[in-house]
Amino acid sequence: MDLAAICIEPLGSEHDRSAFSCGVPALDRYLREQAGQDARRRVAAPFVASSDRVTVLGFYTLSATSIQLTEVPAALAKKLPRYPRLPATLLGRLATDLSARGVGLGRFLLIDAITRAVRSEIASFALVLDAKDETAASFYERESFIRIPGTPIRLLRRMDDLAALVGGSRSGASA
Rank of each mutant, 00 (worst) to 15 (best):
Y83F: 14
V48W: 00
G23E: 12
A163G: 04
L98M: 12
R158P: 14
A163V: 05
G106W: 00
I6L: 14
P25I: 05
E143G: 00
L91G: 02
S138T: 14
V128C: 06
G92V: 07
Y30S: 01
L105F: 02
L98S: 12
L69I: 10
I114Y: 01
D160W: 04
V56A: 07
P10T: 10
L91F: 03
V128M: 06
G104S: 09
S171C: 05
S50M: 12
R17G: 00
R170Q: 11
Q37S: 12
L94G: 06
T70N: 12
L129F: 04
A123W: 06
S169E: 10
E143R: 02
A39S: 13
A137S: 08
A164I: 07
Y30G: 02
F139D: 04
V48F: 04
Y60N: 03
I122Y: 09
I146C: 10
G168R: 05
I114D: 02
R41I: 07
G36H: 13
G150Y: 07
L31V: 08
A75E: 14
A175D: 12
R147W: 09
A163L: 03
Y60W: 05
L129A: 01
R107Y: 01
Y83H: 15
T96E: 07
I153V: 10
G150T: 06
R42F: 08
L90K: 05
E71N: 14
D97I: 02
F20N: 03
L162I: 00
